[in-house]
């Protein structure tokens, strides 16, 4: 008997992507009995589930965000777990701390749900591991050929060059709390910035989770407690909505930066009215998406949140069958 096609045992339901022989949903949109969670971003890890299986770091992140399940099961990288008739394990996705691909094997057929992922080096999380499979479920946040993210360290040197150019001005950089913040800090440390990094209140808890999981972030201080003299010439990280509201009035004439994968396109930069746009992304860019699909060598690819059409067209020309897997509700996080 030939192995069953994954579409017969893994398919979307209103609650989210359902693995029938395993009896669980992956990153469900509504509260369910059994959930397997790829990573801690709010559009993937929602509250109210009874039993949650995820990497230990993701469970800690969910707890810090107040969306932990009633029962939690931590899985280590590569650890085989039986769920009904399915064998499941996690492999790193390289997106944020704890972010995992869900590998599912059922009667000789194998599917991988990658969640969100990136391929660029990131000192704050484990690097993506390609797993050969029959169906690969990919995100496509930056699924257009116009997205080619530059090396992140180069963007950090632009930030440091701006600090040298305007030694008297504070630099406040907009970034979201989970992933982008810690990656920026780690990159700053790698680029030789040893002085304190000041944080908006909203970013502090997540940095503590990273530290607890062994990611060294160096000297971090609450920006609210710092005085103006320290902040002038310093770096403040803050979630984008609080920059105009809180930090621009407080810092006088700061250089306003923003770290986002969308800023590679000038049109977006113009709309943002940002003085220092930093092209730093948590997601794979166009080249990385295509290289990944070639590496995992799945004959069929299901494309979730983002621009599916271009990716499906591009892989089709290489003999890979692409399908749009529309799951409403993803992709509402910062990219």
């Amino acid at each position: 008997m030939s192995p069953p096609h994954p579409q017969t045992w893994l398919y979307p339901r209103p609650e989210g992507l359902f693995c029938e022989p395993g009896g669980f949903f992956i990153d469900p949109l509504r509260a369910v009995d059994r959930a397997v969670i790829t990573h801690g971003h709010s559009d993937h890890a929602r509250g109210g589930h009874r039993a949650v299986l995820a990497h230990a770091a993701t469970l800690a992140i969910m707890k810090a965000r107040g969306v932990a399940g009633k029962a939690s099961q931590a899985a280590g990288w590569g650890e085989r777990i039986g769920m009904g008739e399915v064998t499941l394990w996690l492999e790193p996705a390289g997106h944020v701390l704890g972010s995992a691909q869900i590998v599912m094997a059922y009667r000789g057929s194998r599917a991988v749900v990658s969640g969100d992922y990136k391929r660029a080096a990131d000192p704050t999380c484990e690097a993506f591991v390609p797993v050969p499979c029959d169906v690969f479920v990919t995100e496509a946040t930056f699924g257009l050929p116009v997205f080619r993210h530059p090396p992140a360290l180069g963007e950090i040197s632009r930030l440091l060059a701006s600090m040298a150019l305007y030694p008297g001005r504070a630099h406040v950089v907009g970034c979201y709390s989970l992933g982008k913040t810690q990656r920026l800090i780690a990159l700053l440390r790698r680029a030789g910035w040893e002085r304190p990094v000041y944080l908006d209140q909203a970013l502090i808890a997540m940095c503590a989770v990273y530290e607890a999981h062994g990611v060294r972030l160096g000297d971090l201080r609450p920006a609210l407690a710092a005085d103006g003299a320290d902040l002038a010439g310093g770096i403040v990280l803050a979630p984008p909505p609080s920059i105009g509201e809180r930090w621009v009035p407080r810092l006088g004439d700061p250089v306003v930066g923003l770290a986002s994968g969308w800023l590679g396109v000038r049109q977006r930069v113009r709309q943002g009215r940002v003085e220092l746009p930093l092209v730093v992304s948590d997601h794979a860019d166009w080249d990385e998406l295509n290289a990944t699909l070639d590496e995992v060598a799945a004959p069929e690819v299901w494309v979730t949140h983002g621009s599916e059409a271009a990716l499906i067209h591009a892989v089709g020309r290489r003999g890979i069958r692409g399908r749009a897997l529309r799951l409403v509700g993803y992709g509402e996080e910062e990219a």
Binding site: L144, P145, V146, V265, R266, Q267, S307, A310, H313, A314
Partner: peptide
């Protein structure tokens, strides 16, 4: 590829920038 260029241009809105990217 004309399909990919069309999709890219639709997002960027500027021919020069689409070609550059």
């Amino acid at each position: 590829d004309p399909v990919l260029f069309g999709l890219g241009h639709g997002f960027v809105g500027d021919v020069a920038e689409t070609v550059a990217l």
